[in-house]
Amino acid sequence: MNKKGFTILELLISIALISVVLLLLLRVMMALEAINHDKSYASDDEIARTEIIGNIEQDFLDYHLNGLQIKRQDEKTILTLFMDQEKTIIIDNKSLTYDNEKYSLKSTNATYGSCLTYQYQELENDYYLVSIVIPVYIDGENTTVKDDLELTYLGLKNELSNYPRHFTC
C-alpha cells in the first residue's frame, strides 16, 4: 500500500466528529459560566447561609427557644433569643453575628435587609409556630428567597413563653 497522507474524506469525518464533541463541551461551559457569574442571588454565600441556619436552628432545639425580642439600634437589627442560654443575632448591612461569630457577606452586590419578616402563629394543643426571615438584597432588591435566611421554630407554650405577636420595622 502506498498511502502518503489523509484523504479528504478522512479529514472531513475527523473534523466533523471533533466539532460535535467541542460543540457539546461549549454548551456545558457556557452554562457553567452563567452559573459562575450569576449575580441574581448571593451565590457566594450559600455555604455560610447553610451554616448560619444550621447553627441557629440546632440551638433552638438544644436550648429550647422560649421567646425573643427584636429591636433596631444604630442601623442594626438585634434579635435576642431567650433560650436556656440567651443568644443574640445582630444584623447589619453586610454581616450577621450570631453567638459572637461574625459571618460577612462575600457576594459583592449583596446586603442584609434591615427589615426582617417575623410571624407568630398559635396552633392547636398549645403549640405555636415562629417564622423569621432575614432578607438578602441584591443591588437593593430582594430578588429571590433562596438566599434569604429563613428560621422556623415549632414549640409548646409554657409559663416562660414570651414572643411578640407582631413586628413591623
Binding site: T50, L149, E150, L151, T152
Partner: peptide, 11 residues
C-alpha cells in the same frame, strides 16, 4: 435538602 426546608420537615 435546603437547610431551612430540612428544619421545616423536622418540625
Amino acid at each position: 435538602d435546603d437547610a431551612a426546608n430540612i428544619y421545616k420537615m423536622y418540625y
